[in-house]
Amino acid sequence: MLDIDQYAYSNQLRQVHPVEKALFTFMTMLVCLVANSIITSLAVITLMVGVVIFKAEIPLQFLIKLLLLPISFLFLATVTVVITITNSGGDFLFYFNLFGWKIGVGAGSLIKALNLFLKSLGTVSCLYFLALTTPMVELLSILKRLKIPKIFIELMILIYRFIFVLLETANLIRVSQVSRLGYSSFKNSFYSLSKLVSNLFVRSYYRAKGLLTTLLARGYEGEIKVLEPDYEYSKKNFVLIFVAEILLIILTIYVGGGDFVIINT
């Protein structure tokens, strides 16, 4: 999480207007979600990974590390789509009988699962592009432009800040435990982990309370005001964004072999 925030402030697309990056993200995500095409999903993943690596200059190893987490969850989720259980005939690639029921993998379910997996991974790659290239403060400025109620924006700021407080507190406790050989054995590791979890929220609560006191001492009246850099819109970037989306749509219609649908059946 800390690395994501660091790259958001130091990447090579930092000076690009946040509205342009958000527009590119959500338009590409919309095409990926609506297009019923495996090839379109692969194109979206390739596009986003390419922009993050070659334009934003985020290390490939770090991006792969980030993608492994959603890939593991998506793999477990799509396994339930792949496996078919029926007591009648079906188009199976392979199956076995268990008490009169056929349990196996069908050709149709395999394609559907692959489509779902790649579509989900494509949307995740879009969100990673936005998270790795745009600081949280600038994302909140976009929400202000959209007239989102202030209470929601304030909650997002505080929750985002408290995530780092929680991570920092957990790291301090763990470093203290490691220095006392708290993880020297399997038994000690379980004991130290239980102590870490039990003390983490108590210490985080007091740190959060101290943060609130600091805000009140600085005149906090229910709205956190931060300085926002001045950006200029780039006509070139808007043209590139729309060209990229049009190419993805053309790919879906003429090459991808899928139709635009809202819900797959």
Rank of each mutant, 00 (worst) to 15 (best):
S141P: 07
L181I: 07
M136H: 15
G50Y: 12
M136V: 01
L181G: 02
L181K: 05
M1S: 14
G104E: 01
R174V: 11
V202S: 08
Y220T: 09
V34M: 08
Y95G: 02
S198W: 01
G256S: 01
F99R: 08
K65S: 13
K102T: 07
Y205W: 14
Y95S: 13
L166E: 01
E228L: 10
K236Y: 10
E221C: 08
L200S: 08
P229N: 07
I246C: 10
Y183S: 09
S141D: 15
T169P: 00
L200K: 06
T214W: 08
K144H: 15
G90H: 02
L13T: 08
S234R: 03
R161K: 15
L76E: 03
T78F: 05
S176A: 14
I38F: 10
L251K: 01
L227S: 12
R174A: 02
M1T: 12
K102M: 03
L110K: 12
Y220E: 04
A35G: 01
L66A: 08
V49G: 02
T78H: 04
L166W: 02
P149N: 03
L68A: 00
I246K: 01
K187L: 11
G258H: 05
E232T: 14
V175A: 14
F94D: 03
T78P: 00
F54P: 00
L66S: 05
A107S: 15
Q6P: 02
I153T: 07
F26K: 05
F73P: 01
A77V: 14
L251F: 10
I39L: 14
A170T: 15
V226C: 05
